[in-house]
Write a protein that binds this DNA or RNA. Sequence first.
DNA 1: CTTTAGACCTGGGTGC
DNA 2: TGCACCCAGGTCTAAA
Length: 303
Amino acid sequence: MPELPEVETVRRGLAPAMEGRRIREALARRPDLRWPLPERLNERLAGRRIAGLGRRAKYLLIDLDSDAAAANEVLVVHLGMSGSFRIEAGDGAGDRAAEAPGAFHIPRSKAAAHDHVVLRLEHGVDIVYNDPRRFGAMLLVPRTELEAHPLFRDIGPEPLGNGFDAAGLAKALTGRRTPIKAALLDQKIVAGLGNIYVCEALHRAGIAPERLALTLASPTGRATRETRLLVETIRAVLEEAIAAGGSTLRDHSQVDGTLGYFQHTFRAYDREGQPCLAPGCHGSIARLVQAGRSTFYCASCQR
DNA sequence: CTTTAGACCTGGGTGC
DNA sequence: TGCACCCAGGTCTAAA
């Protein structure tokens, strides 16, 4: 469940359970997700206090205080394609003592397939990370090195922040001969959009996905009516999606088990063959493949 | 430099 | 029931 609105929903769901709490124990069931998990995860997390939860692009940022002289670190989490968190009541001290040191301390009744990491908090709450496809990632980065980190260094502006505007988008699209669909998926141009919200934004803006990116900016790289429209549309779609708790596909749910419902609001994504929902449009949604990803659009009202 | 194809994984759905 | 095949919310890497 991983575009910006879903990650933001996860952040908001986890925050009340995590912020200000201390990690009692960090348990890893396997050594890696997409990349190796941080070395000595438990030694580095146990006892640390969670200062707060943040987000950058599709990354969840778990801010950790450190005792003593060690530098503060951020536990950076990416959900990949299939990552999710859930909050569970811990099992208390009882049966933990019965298990071997280093064992994965999830009661059998609760352990689910693909539960890879558990953060056991001091107040008896387990934060469980589950990720069937393991495209997700976790890494520990010193707070001061976060922005310069290779994963963050080249990422574009936050679409809901002040750094995202028509002038900047126009500049980023200038000279790019890639389709606008692919350009908006490029995290260097704008952060946090994925396949769903790019399709939805282009549909709402009435812009054809095959249009070359450079055609949306003026020849001199200035903002145009379309660049401005795209900026506003992207913002609106993301804000609506966050307000709806994100989109819930397949069996994913939010951290407390409730479902986001923005998927009921899709006007294009995954609606191949169905009528276009743009006001006054009598077309239907088609599917094409761009850069290896499905694009859903209406050839009638997207120009 | 820009752009694309392949790679990484598991699971669900479809059609034979 | 089994099996082959396609598809899926991402993004890094190598190659063109």
